[in-house]
Nucleic acid binder design. Structure first.
Length: 379
DNA sequence: ACTCCTTTGAAGGCG
DNA sequence: CGCCTTCAAAGGAGT
C-alpha cells in the first residue's frame, strides 16, 4: 500500500486534502494505475462511445473499437512525436535543466504520465494557447530540489525565475507555447512572483489577472501566465479573450479593467489542474472532443492515479489557493455565486431526492451507475 | 447566444 | 458537524 509518505511527504500534499482511497480496492487501484496506460484510453473511449449505443456485444465491439482507437492512438502518438516541437523542446530543456533536475529523487514521480519528466507538467491555463493545441499544453515545472524551500511553488507563474537564468532571447522560438522551466522561488515572496504593483498584494487589481510572464510572452501569445484563469468577464466563457484583450500588449488595459470589473475566478482544485493538464492528451489519444466525455475519462484516470501523483496536484492546488488568497485577500467564492447562469438547480434538487452527489460525483437518473463502479470491461 | 453535460474538489451557508 | 449548493475548466451538443 503506497501510503503517502508521511515522513518526508508531509509538505507535499496537505494531509487534510488527501482523499482516502477506501472506496476502491487499493490493489485494484494499484493495478489500474499501473496498467492504465495510454492504450487503455482506447477502452475508455470505446466504452464511452459504446455506452450510448448499447452495452451488448461489448466484447468484440469493444475490442475492435479499442484496437482501432489504439491504432489511432499510436498513430497520433507517432504524429505527435514528429510534429511536436514541444517534445523537442522538452528534450532540449532537459538538457538545459539537467543539472538541477537530475538531482530529483527518482522514486517520487514514477510511472505516471510524467514518467520521463523530472518535473511536473502544468496545464494550459498557464499557457496562452494551451487549450488549442493538445501538443502544447504542458509546462514543465521544476520540482523543488536541492536546498529549496519545501513549499516552493510548482506553479509556473513566477516571474522570478525568468528574470534570472533563462532569458527569453535565448529561449527557443516555441517557448511561447510552454512557459519554460520554473525555478524554485520563495513562496512567501509573492510580490517577487507576481510583479505586483508597488502598493502591494492587496492592491492588485483583478484585471491584472494572474501572473504574466513577460519573458516568455511572444507576439500573438497570451500575455498571461494565468494559472487558473483568475479573472473573467461576468458573462464568463470569454475569459481567454478577456485575458487577451486585457493583457496581451494592449495599450488600454486600465480603462478596460476599470470599466469591466472582471470577475475573479475560483482557484482551480487539484482535479481541475489535472484536467487542464491531461485534457489535451486525452483528446489527442481518443480523438474525442466532447468535454463531458473527456471529463469522464479524466475522472476515472484521476482515480487511477497513485497517491503520489495525486499529491502533486493537491499540492499545486494548495499553492494556488494560497496565492489566490494573497492576491485577493477579500475575495470569496461566494462573490461569484449567481454569475454563472443558474443551471440545473431545479434539476439537481430533483435528482437530489433520488440520486445525489456522492464521493463519486453527481449521478443523474440516466446514469444511475457511476462509471467508477463499472467493471473495466464494460468501461 | 446561451445553456447543458460531465468530472472532482473547495468553500460557504444552513440546520 | 454534516449536508447541500455553487463554481472552477472545457468544448461539443442542444435549444
Amino acid at each position: 500500500m503506497p501510503q503517502l509518505n508521511s515522513g518526508g511527504g508531509d509538505d507535499l500534499g496537505a494531509n487534510d486534502e488527501m482523499i482516502a482511497f477506501k472506496d476502491e480496492g487499493e490493489q485494484e487501484e494499484k493495478i489500474q494505475a499501473n496498467v492504465f496506460t495510454e492504450g487503455d484510453l482506447a477502452d475508455l473511449k470505446s466504452s464511452l462511445v459504446n455506452e450510448s449505443e448499447s452495452t451488448s456485444s461489448s466484447n468484440s465491439q469493444t475490442s475492435n473499437a479499442a484496437a482501432a482507437v489504439a491504432t489511432a492512438g499510436a498513430h497520433s502518438e507517432a504524429i505527435r512525436r514528429m510534429q511536436d516541437p514541444q517534445r523537442v523542446y522538452q528534450e532540449k530543456l532537459s538538457d538545459h535543466m539537467e543539472d538541477g533536475l537530475k538531482h530529483q529523487e527518482p522514486g517520487m514521480y514514477k510511472g505516471s504520465a510524467y514518467s520521463g519528466y523530472p518535473f511536473l507538467m502544468l496545464p494550459d491555463p498557464y499557457l496562452p494557447n494551451g487549450s488549442v493545441s493538445p501538443l502544447s499544453n504542458k509546462v514543465p515545472v521544476v520540482q523543488p530540489s536541492h536546498g529549496v524551500h519545501p513549499l516552493t511553488p510548482l506553479i509556473p507563474y513566477s516571474n522570478e525565475h525568468f528574470s534570472h537564468g533563462s532569458h527569453s532571447p535565448h529561449l527557443p522560438a516555441d517557448i511561447n507555447q510552454k512557459q519554460g522551466v520554473h525555478r524554485p522561488a520563495q513562496t512567501s515572496d509573492i510580490s517577487g512572483f507576481y510583479s505586483l504593483p508597488p502598493g502591494g498584494v492587496g492592491q492588485i487589481t483583478p484585471s491584472m489577472g494572474w501572473l504574466t510572464h513577460p519573458l516568455v510572452l511572444s507576439p500573438g501569445m497570451h500575455a498571461t501566465g494565468i494559472p487558473h484563469a483568475g479573472i473573467t468577464s461576468p458573462s464568463g466563457k470569454q475569459e481567454t479573450d478577456h485575458y487577451d484583450r486585457n493583457m496581451k500588449s494592449q495599450p488600454e488595459p486600465k480603462r478596460e479593467k476599470e470599466a469591466k470589473k472582471p470577475t475573479i475566478k475560483k482557484p482551480l482544485n487539484a482535479f481541475m489542474l489535472y484536467m487542464k493538464e491531461m485534457r489535451a492528451k486525452v483528446i489527442a489519444e481518443c480523438t474525442l472532443k466532447e468535454s463531458a466525455a473527456i471529463n469522464q475519462i479524466l475522472g476515472r484516470r484521476w482515480h487511477a492515479l497513485s497517491r503520489e501523483e495525486q499529491a502533486k496536484y493537491y499540492e499545486l492546488a494548495r499553492k494556488e489557493r494560497q496565492l489566490h488568497m494573497q492576491l485577493y485577500p477579500g475575495w470569496s467564492a461566494r462573490d461569484n455565486y449567481g454569475k454563472k447562469k443558474r443551471r440545473t438547480r431545479e434539476k439537481q434538487q430533483d435528482s437530489n431526492s433520488g440520486g445525489k452527489r456522492s464521493a463519486f460525483g453527481t449521478y443523474k437518473e440516466k446514469d444511475a451507475v457511476p462509471a467508477q463502479f463499472l467493471p473495466m470491461e464494460v468501461l
